[in-house]
Design a protein around this nucleic acid. Structure first.
Lengths: 223, 223
DNA sequence: ACCTGAACACCGTTCAAGT
DNA sequence: ACCTGAACACCGTTCAAGT
């Protein structure tokens, strides 16, 4: 079986199996040897299709971000941010075990670059100074990554325990089974409050239009 | 040298060396064998002082959260949240390589439990319904963890590249050297906007005081 | 062209043995 | 009481060899 008529492996097949393995067993559950076994092959064979495990993970991260939508800015910056943030969070929440790796991979993912560019452009077109656009893009990402991170691997289960302990009247079933629901509701609350705050700020900032923003230092950039 | 007059190791010495190694070489840079070598000892010796590597990391995570301050709620919920969020972020930013592990460890960290409890109590005392208190605590954590995560390991450097590419007039030095500064300013922007949005919401919610909140479903919890 | 066996330099963890 | 050597079951990656 050393030379089948058609190859046993393709990059496609490898990536699919790898992502399934991560979803099932966690990021640490993926090893090149286990992945190879899963594909009916020896670990060395994988290296005909990819250079390193890190490259494989980077490719997976890019795949996962396919569903992110940064095209909503034509209907206003608030709508654009909302669509982007929601689709971004959903993409990450679909594969929470991969999230810790996302922060680990630097600027090698073309998808991320394209979206960051679209967001920045959408914000500046709406009148946000460049420096604010940078900070708003970063802030929104904080929210998305933080929310995805928290649902990672069962999440910060400590919270749930606290609430169950403090509020025995609330059914445990509601809190525990609704963990995913609370995550999403919390994210929506955070996003709405954040956008409400930004809308207020936008009114102030819009007066001094097209000032590029020269602030520095660690003080509150709003005041 | 098999039995020195006083032990070569203490839990304290092990933890200090381990945290320094993580700060220097990253989370993957810490191995029990390298740590042992650093301490002038063999790997097996460490297991007289700790059960597993995971336990060591959990202890480190708890240590790192020592500086978190959730005592500010006596001066109002907004002040309490602000102090908590800032001190939390600073604690994480001091050891960014450890942040990915934080989400990995479930509710085994007593510090985290104490703070979550204080935050929840501070919010409900200020008139927030329990369900909102839960979501606000979670939301704030999203912001903190997301911000700390992003600065982890050089962070999402892609952003910086995009901005440098799009805005060649902005000095690269400003953007690259000020990465940490932009991180903190973005965090402050996000926090302020979020709190502004919450303040608006508080006025609405305060009327229906002490209603425990029975909403469910995935719709926007604000409206 | 595609896959493999064997090897290299690593892991975390255990445990009988040394002093 | 404290540390170690040796072992076990793993890693990612390389590379000459097989068909």
């Amino acid at each position: 079986m050393a030379r089948p008529s058609s190859p046993l492996l393709t990059r496609e097949r490898i990536r699919t199996a790898a992502l399934a393995m991560i979803d099932r067993d966690g990021l640490d559950g993926l090893s090149m040897r286990r992945l190879a076994a899963d594909l009916g092959v020896r670990a060395a064979s994988l290296y005909g299709y990819l250079a390193t495990k890190d490259e494989l993970l980077t490719d997976l991260a890019d795949d996962v971000l396919t569903g992110v939508d940064s095209s909503g800015f034509s209907e206003g910056w608030r709508h654009g941010l909302t669509v982007w943030a929601r689709s971004y969070r959903e993409a990450l929440a679909a594969h929470p075990n991969l999230v810790p790796f996302l922060a680990h991979s630097p600027g090698r993912r073309p998808q991320a670059l394209r979206h960051a560019d679209a967001v920045h452009g959408g914000l500046t077109s709406a009148g946000w100074p460049a420096r604010y656009a940078t900070m708003i893009g970063a802030s929104t990402k904080y929210l998305v990554v933080g929310a995805a991170m928290t649902s990672f691997s069962g999440g910060f289960a400590d919270d749930v325990e606290v609430y169950v302990g403090r509020y025995p009247n609330l059914s445990q079933a509601h809190l525990l089974a609704g963990h995913e629901e609370i995550d999403r509701d919390s994210f929506e609350l955070a996003l709405t409050a954040f956008l409400d705050g930004l809308s207020r700020l936008h009114e102030q900032v819009a007066r001094h239009d097209s000032e590029p923003g020269v602030r520095s230092g660690s003080e509150n950039p709003l005041k």
